[in-house]
Structure formats: C-alpha cells, structure tokens
C-alpha cells in the first residue's frame, strides 16, 4: 500500500481534470472555441506515451546488459501501453482536426510523422510475434525497441518543426506559446499530463504483473 500512493494521485488528478477541464475558464478563440479543452485530453496521451515508451527502452537496455525474462516482460508491456496511448492520441487528434481544420486527416508533417512512428512501433509487435525461441525474441525485440524509439522520437517531436505545419508545436512554433499565456489553462494542463502519464504507468504495471503471474503458473506446470 505504501508504494501505491501514485495510483491515488492518478485517481485524484484524473477526476480533477475531468471536472476542471470542462469548467475552468479558457481563452476565447475563434475556430477553436470550446474545443481548446481537448488540450487536456489529447496532448497528455502523447506525453504519457513518450514517458511509457522511454521506460520501455530503459528496460530493453537493462535486458541487453543482464538478460532476465522479467525485464523482457516489463519492456514489452510498457511498449504495448505506449502504443495504445499513441493510437488514442491519433484518434483524438483526428476528431479535433475534423472540427477545426475541416478534415479527419491532413498531409501535415506532424500528423504523418506521428503515423509513421506508430507504424514503426506496429512493426515491433509483428517482429515479436514472429519468433518461436523466447530468448531470441527477447533479445531481437529489445534491440529493435531501441531503434524504434530512436526513429520515432524525431518523427514526433523534431522533424515536424523543420517545415511548415498546421499543428501547434510544429513548423517552428514553440509548443504551447499560444495557450501558455493563459495561466488558467496551466492549472488544468499540468495536472492532466501528470495524471494521464501515471495512468499509463499503472496500466503497464498491471499488464506486466499479469504476465509475471502467467509465467509463474506456466513454470509450475512444467515442474
């Protein structure tokens, strides 16, 4: 219980974000209107995804230094959670785009970069499922995971800034300059980022623990 305080924090922050995200004052901007509140839900998905994928790479590196099945499970489940959050980020962004830019998808460098990065991570799952041997699977997917992270992060956060883009935080724009002026939004946005990120770690932890249990039961049956 002592080690679970961060789960309580996640619950409080997410409930706060659900209420404050809809009720707190936001800047009155044309086109965006109330949809500016999506900032509290769409953007934290990407923050959470980045944090969980970073954890996944951390476990992959540790696996390659000193291989254990646990590290492989932790890295795999973290990567899966990150991929889930990334797809939720794409879906929510698509809805937001439809009602502000007028299309579900535009050939914007930020959008296409994110889509390519998600495909790179999709290949991680395909690669993993194509091995019979457990140790080979763990080793090769740990290596691929590091390369996937190194390829995906510039696609998400660096390349879109080098060209013109509609998306805030791309095309040379500092990410939140337009909204950051409003300190009311910060009161919700920062707790939202922390809350959703913690939820991502919580889900990854639960998935890993189920996988540990499965492995233990399997080992016992073999013994």
């Amino acid at each position: 219980m002592k080690n679970n305080w961060w789960k309580g924090l996640a619950v409080v922050l997410l409930l706060y974000v659900a209420a404050a995200g809809l009720l707190m004052p936001v800047p009155r901007l044309a086109i965006l209107n109330e949809s500016i509140r999506n900032l509290y839900f769409h953007v934290p998905m990407w923050f959470g995804m980045t944090a969980v994928l970073t954890a996944s790479v951390y476990y992959s590196v540790r696996y390659l230094r000193a291989p254990t099945p646990q590290l492989d499970i932790l890295s795999h489940e973290a990567a899966k959670t990150g991929i889930y959050m990334g797809f939720v980020g794409l879906a929510t962004g698509s809805i937001w785009a439809k009602y502000t830019w007028g299309a579900w998808w535009t050939n914007d460098p930020k959008l296409n970069g994110a889509a390519i990065a998600m495909l790179i991570y999709g290949a991680y799952l395909v690669l993993r499922s194509s091995f019979q041997d457990e140790q080979q699977r763990a080793r090769v997917s740990a290596i691929y995971n590091i390369f996937a992270f190194a390829a995906a992060m510039p696609l998400f956060f660096i390349l879109p800034r080098l060209t013109a883009s509609l998306h805030p935080g791309a095309g040379g724009n500092p990410a939140f300059a337009k909204y950051d002026l409003d300190s009311n939004m910060r009161l919700v946005f920062y707790p939202a980022v922390i809350g959703w990120t913690l939820l991502g770690f919580w889900l990854a932890q639960l998935a890993s623990r189920v996988a540990f249990l499965k492995q233990k039961v399997y080992d016992k049956q073999l013994a």
Partner: peptide
Amino acid sequence: LFIALLLPV
C-alpha cells in the same frame, strides 16, 4: 482539497 482546486471555476 478537491473542492478548493475547483474554486477558480
């Protein structure tokens, strides 16, 4: 604490 956080509403 929760109610206090919502005061700016």
